[in-house]
Amino acid sequence: MLAVYASAPNPDDPLAGLTIGDRPEPQAPEGWVTVNVRASSLNMHDVFTLRGVGIKADRFPMILGCDGAGVLDDGTEVVIHGVVSEDWQGDETLNPKRSLFTEVHQGTFAEKVIVPKRNVLPKPESLSFAEAACMGTAWLTAYRMIFVKSSLRPGQTMLVQGASGGVATALVALGRAAGMRVWATGRTEEKRALATAQGADAVFETGARLPERVDAVFETVGGATWSHSVKSLRPGGEIIISGTTTGEPSTAELQRIFFLQLSVIGSTMGTRDELQDLLSYCAQQSIKPKIGLEVPLEQAEEGFRAMVGGETAGKIVFTQAG
């Protein structure tokens, strides 16, 4: 079957190990199902896999992709939940043995993928396969950050740093739908325009002084924006962080954090139940993800190059004919 996979890790040149070609068709063991993939979306996690981060060397070659939507053999249209957590009760994101697809199990950038039965949920009719494929990582991460981890209430102000990637565009759209006042930063005029189109009430250049301090900051960037995030908070405010795409900050700003009694809250992915709630919420509110680039699976390298180059404008999606 056609698949997009990492043939070998390369920390310095991740695209060197990116391969598009044939891989063996998977066979589902008991308790697992086969999904005939119609669309899958790219995440920074896939670039990390190409670099060899979070995956053992003996796992290569590894089919990439954490997210997807497709059809079961019986015709049921489904969305894939990317967190694999077997023999665990409760919040699966807290399971120390949890994994994402591509870390232990082969991923979704293929004609077929096998997943545990609990890892498929019904696809809402209101979402296309391409739109549904965006839900499992980026949008689920954003949903958990706002509605599970933060203490924001409608009417309060949230700041989204770097609002052009998948998680950031989801944060803007979900925050706006929930009644927050949404501010966002972007490196370029085009990225700021994208945040406005997604519903941001105000946009600013990266690092710009804000008109007032905010109730919460949503961080996925890391080192490049961390100091600005801390300085942008009102006393008692909170930072919810789910990524560090630009690396660790040079200083933690600990004095400001303790003196102003700020909260720093980590957030990772989300649970199956939260994904179900997210899908229902999007259907009820007629929310659809922003797709910045959609290409056939065999042209996946184009999407990877856009992500590595920082040229994102929403989610990057790979599609396949039914």
Rank of each mutant, 00 (worst) to 15 (best):
A3D: 11
D12I: 05
D13C: 09
D13T: 11
D13H: 14
P14H: 03
A16N: 11
L18V: 14
P24Y: 13
P24V: 12
A39T: 12
M44E: 06
L50T: 02
V53F: 08
V53A: 06
C66M: 12
D67S: 06
D67W: 05
G68V: 10
G68Y: 08
G68H: 09
A69T: 07
E77G: 02
V79L: 13
H81L: 10
V83T: 13
V83M: 06
S85N: 01
W88V: 05
Q89S: 15
G90S: 01
E92H: 04
E92S: 04
S99G: 12
L100V: 12
T102G: 05
V104H: 13
V104F: 01
T108C: 14
K112Y: 00
V115F: 10
P116N: 06
L121A: 04
P122R: 09
P122Y: 04
E125S: 13
E125Q: 15
S126W: 04
A133M: 11
M135V: 13
A138Q: 04
Y143K: 02
M145V: 03
P154H: 10
Q156Y: 07
L159G: 00
V160P: 01
V167F: 05
V167E: 01
A170F: 04
L171K: 07
V172M: 12
L174R: 03
G175E: 05
G175M: 12
A177P: 05
M180R: 07
M180T: 00
V182I: 13
T188L: 11
R192A: 12
A195N: 06
A197K: 14
A202W: 03
V203G: 00
G207P: 06
R209V: 15
E219G: 03
T220G: 15
V221I: 14
G222N: 08
A224M: 09
S229H: 00
S232W: 04
L233P: 00
L233H: 02
E238C: 01
I241T: 14
S242H: 03
T244E: 15
T245R: 00
P249H: 09
P249I: 10
S250I: 13
T251A: 15
T251P: 07
A252H: 02
R256M: 15
I257K: 01
L262E: 06
V264G: 05
T268H: 14
M269C: 09
T271D: 02
R272E: 11
R272G: 01
D277M: 15
A283D: 09
A283E: 15
S286C: 12
P289V: 13
P289D: 04
I291H: 06
G292P: 08
L293F: 10
E294F: 01
P296S: 07
L297T: 11
Q299E: 14
A300Y: 07
E302N: 13
G303R: 04
F304L: 11
V317S: 08
F318E: 02
T319F: 08
Q320A: 09
